[in-house]
Nucleic acid binder design. Structure first.
Lengths: 154, 154
DNA sequence: CGCAATTCAATTGCGCACAATCTAATTACG
DNA sequence: CGTAATTAGATTGTGCGCAATTGAATTGCG
């Protein structure tokens, strides 16, 4: 698989590979969501909500915009999602006093406390995907670099 | 990054890595969709519709179930999607005569013809993600293997 | 044969994703 | 200062993604 391929032949091959990569990333992302779903259900979180909570556990009291940048989501997705988290009693939404355009999202005590249970979930996932640390790290780096290249061309 | 880590210390590290992998795959999948979107717009296809069309270009006249297995989608997603493709004049939906539970999806001439334009899109993506063949192949294999491990545990 | 279990697709309901549009607040500039 | 441009967030509309339910067709088993 590592030999040089004549340019003419490589074209069709490249297209095929690209297509396979499409399918692979699409399938893997959904498999991830499906694997998380039953584990997150006891916490009352969906997978995107879980990602938002992680962002808040790492850094509390962020504006909606900051969360959106971190996850690549816009207000159209986050506004209703955050309202659901608020209704679940996990976060608070408060206008910033200095800049009233901002809505700052902060954790409630209940939201903070949920972190411990979430750690168990993360650990369970680690076993479910069952890959070595190096393999996981390499995959993470490859995906991040892929994304950066795509975002740059945008 | 490749040194052995004491077991006690590795636990927190592993959780962190896992979380990062979550974010990475989530972000990369959406970046893929976003990159494809403007390229597919001239063809009148969304990204999931494009994946369905690829499945049909590779193998025409498939039952809904077969397409679902290929893409990991159920009838709740595919039924309306296929109706939209039918309304666009790209596919036909016909009950199988021998087994009337099956709905067979086949390409119209318009649907078949679209393949040529789609090849251009795939080529354009290849440039957008701009990774070498080996890198793409390795990523594809890592994702497929990751997905298989997750699906197996389900 | 006859009835139960299975299989396939469609439908319903909920929750993302994202483009487009809107409103309000802030900043920039003449 | 005052108006234009920018920024943040909410809203609307379309299209997935999936669980749960439904209904029709087929298969399996006594």
């Amino acid at each position: 698989m590592k030999e040089k391929v004549p340019a003419a032949a490589s074209q069709g091959f490249e297209i095929k590979l690209n297509t396979q990569l499409c399918f692979a990333i699409y399938g893997a992302a959904h498999a991830f969501t499906r694997t998380y779903k039953p584990l997150l259900e006891p916490l009352g979180l969906t997978y995107p909500q879980y990602l938002v909570m992680i962002a808040l556990w790492e850094d509390d009291d962020q504006p909606v915009k900051a969360i959106g940048d971190r996850l690549g989501l816009d207000s159209g997705t986050l506004s209703p999602l955050l309202k659901r988290l608020e209704q679940s009693g996990l976060v608070l939404r408060k206008r910033d006093r200095d800049d009233e355009r901002l809505v700052r999202i902060s954790l409630t005590e209940k939201g903070s406390d949920l972190r411990l249970q979430a750690l168990d979930v993360t650990e369970a996932i680690g076993k479910a995907i069952g890959c070595g640390l190096e393999e996981a790290a390499a995959l993470r780096d490859a995906l991040i670099s892929l994304r950066e290249r795509m975002d740059d061309r945008d």
